[in-house]
C-alpha cells in the first residue's frame, strides 16, 4: 500500500526517469548502425543484407566476411549482387591500405635516386683516391663519407621496399575487386555498373602498377649503388689499420641485421625470476565455477558412464 501511495505521488517523475534510463541504457547496449549477429540458420539473403548494412556503416572487414558468405552460398539470384558489393568493399579496403601505406614515392623520385647515385659515385671516387694516395687521414675521411652515403641509401632502399610491399597488398585487393566486378558482370551481363566499376578498377590497377614499377626500378638502382659502395668500403676497411678506425665507423659487421630481427627491434627482457601471476581471466574462470575444457571428452556410447545416483542429504 505504501508503495502504491508513493507511486501515485511521484508517478510522473518515475515515468520520466524510467524513460530516460531505458533510452540511455538501450542506446549504450544496442549500437544503432551495427547489423545484428546473424543466427546459425541465416539465409544468403540475410548475409547479403547484413553485409550491405556493414558496408554502408563503413565496417569493411565485417562486410567482406558477410558478403563472402553470401557469395559462397551459391544462390544464383543473390550472387551477382553480393559480388558487386564485395568488389566495392575490396576497392575501399585497398584504398584504405593505400592511405595508410608509407609513401615511398618521395625517396623513389628519379631526382632523389639520381642524387643518391651521384653521391654514391662521388663517395666511390673519393675512396679510390684515398686508396691510391695511401693517406690514412684521407682514407678515414673517405670511409666516413662513404659510410654516411651508404646509410642514406640503405634507409631509402628500406623505405622503398616497405612502400612496395604495402602497394602490393593494395594491388592484390584491387585485382580481387576487379575480378569480383567482372564476375558480377559475367553472371548478370545487363549490369552496366559492374562493367563500369571493373574498368575503373583496372585503370586504377594500371596506374598502381606503373607506380610499383617505378618504385622497383628505383629500389634496384639504389641497391646496386649501395652494393658498389659497400664493396669499396670493404676494400678500404681492409687497408686501414684497426687502431686508426674511427669510433663508430660503419663497417661490414654493423651493417648486417641480426637474423630474424628487423632493424629497430630489441630483444625482449628475460623472464627468469618473475613471479607468475594469475590472470584476471583465469581468476574469473575459477570464480565462475567449473567448465568443460577442450581436453575432457564427453562419453560416447555406454562405455565409461554410470547411472546417475540419488543425491544424499547431509550426514549430520
Amino acid at each position: 500500500m505504501m508503495v502504491r501511495a508513493l507511486y501515485h505521488q511521484f508517478r510522473w517523475t518515475l515515468r520520466l526517469g524510467g524513460w530516460a534510463v531505458l533510452v540511455l541504457g538501450g542506446s549504450l547496449v544496442l549500437p544503432a548502425e551495427t547489423a545484428p549477429p546473424l543466427p546459425a540458420g541465416a539465409t544468403p539473403r540475410d548475409w547479403y543484407n547484413a553485409g550491405t548494412v556493414e558496408l554502408r556503416a563503413g565496417k569493411l572487414a565485417e562486410a567482406e566476411e558477410l558478403l563472402q558468405n553470401s557469395v559462397g552460398s551459391q544462390v544464383a539470384p543473390i550472387q551477382p549482387l553480393a559480388l558487386y558489393n564485395l568488389g566495392c568493399v575490396r576497392v575501399a579496403q585497398g584504398t584504405d591500405l593505400l592511405k595508410k601505406s608509407p609513401d615511398g614515392t618521395g625517396r623513389a623520385n628519379p631526382d632523389h635516386v639520381e642524387m643518391l647515385a651521384g653521391l654514391a659515385d662521388d663517395a666511390s671516387r673519393r675512396i679510390d683516391e684515398a686508396i691510391a694516395s695511401e693517406n690514412e687521414q684521407k682514407m678515414i675521411s673517405a670511409y666516413l663519407r662513404g659510410g654516411g652515403v651508404r646509410r642514406e641509401i640503405n634507409a631509402a632502399t628500406k623505405a622503398v621496399h616497405q612502400a612496395l610491399e604495402s602497394k602490393k597488398q593494395v594491388l592484390a585487393k584491387w585485382q580481387r575487386a576487379a575480378g569480383d566486378f567482372r564476375s558480377a558482370a559475367e553472371l548478370h551481363p545487363a549490369d552496366g555498373d559492374a562493367t563500369f566499376n571493373a574498368n575503373a578498377t583496372e585503370k586504377a590497377i594500371a596506374a598502381l602498377i606503373d607506380k610499383l614499377n617505378q618504385l622497383e626500378r628505383a629500389g634496384n638502382k639504389m641497391k646496386a649503388a649501395g652494393k658498389q659502395l659497400g664493396d669499396k668500403l670493404k676494400q678500404l676497411k681492409g687497408m686501414m689499420p684497426m687502431p686508426n678506425m674511427p669510433p663508430g665507423a660503419p663497417g661490414e659487421d654493423d651493417e648486417e641485421d641480426m637474423p630474424g630481427m628487423h632493424p629497430g627491434e630489441k630483444e625482449g627482457a628475460g623472464k627468469t625470476g618473475d613471479e607468475m601471476k594469475i590472470s584476471p581471466e583465469e581468476a574469473a574462470q575459477l570464480l565462475a565455477g567449473f567448465k568443460l575444457s577442450g581436453e575432457h571428452r564427453l562419453p560416447l556410447g555406454k562405455e565409461g558412464t554410470s547411472k546417475p545416483q540419488d543425491r544424499k542429504g547431509k550426514t549430520w
Binding site: G179, R182, S183, E186
Partner: peptide
C-alpha cells in the same frame, strides 16, 4: 572457383585426380 566466372575468387586449389561430384551446371 567461388563463382562460375572466368575471374572468380579462388577458394582453394585441387590436385589432379581428386574425386568429386558435379552437383549442378552453369
Amino acid at each position: 572457383r567461388l563463382t562460375p566466372t572466368e575471374q572468380a575468387q579462388e577458394i582453394t586449389r585441387v590436385g589432379a585426380g581428386e574425386p568429386g561430384r558435379c552437383e549442378r551446371r552453369y
